[in-house]
Amino acid sequence: MISIGIDAGAATTKAVVLHENEIAGYAIIPTGFDFRKAGEAAYREVLSKSGMDETKVGKILATGYGRSIIGFADKTISEITAHARGVGYLIPAAHTIIDIGGQDSKVIITENGKVVDFLMNDRCAAGTGKFLEYTAKALEISLDELGMLAQVSKNPAKISSMCTVFAESEVISLRAQKTKKEDIAAGLIESIILRTTAMVKKLRIKPEVAFVGGVAKNPGVVKAFEKALDTEMQLPEEPQITGALGAALLI
């Protein structure tokens, strides 16, 4: 029997197949408008990627923002519990988890693999993947380029607007002042770091610190985080699947 975890995220839907307590395969697809359709697509893709037959599927557990819409799941669980379990499996030494996704960012503190405290920023795009996505657009570069550029900056620009919309216009005025592109890129990343480190500090870091979610794939952000928190970040091989993995493990 295999178990499947599906993380119906706001930006991407992730699925993990667990076979004898080992990851047999995973899939990451854009969510689009319909959580349910994306969930079904991720389910089919992860089965074909892992070479597993549908008849072998035991239980399916859904997590993420759209979890209640994944009708074919046997059960749902919040992404906070799911991430804690998934990270606990991949990085047992981690006790602080920073997850920055497309729509929200969260900090989770764990003890013996269980959640003991957490904070979420989910009311606005500030400090999330969306913030970087929008502001990169104002710089007319891709997200990957943003991370690369930021690393060569020697003098990061000061971006004072936390609000995504205002930050976008701040970027435009910085461009008008002939600020270097790499300095603006570094400034944008610093602003998201500032927001999230305030959350981490509120809960107080318990080493080790794991960084997951789509934004963890951006090396510029990772470097800036390590500097701000003065600690090394532990990254799973694939930082986007810890929620789905946790869901599969929690069955």
Binding site: Y65, I77, S78, E79, I80, T81, D104, K114, V115, V116, F118, M120, D122, R123
Partner: peptide
């Protein structure tokens, strides 16, 4: 506007 977000937090808190 934030009902779903609050639900997630409450779920996580109750699970905790």
């Amino acid at each position: 506007a934030d009902n779903e977000q609050i639900k997630t937090r409450v779920d996580a808190f109750l699970e905790m």
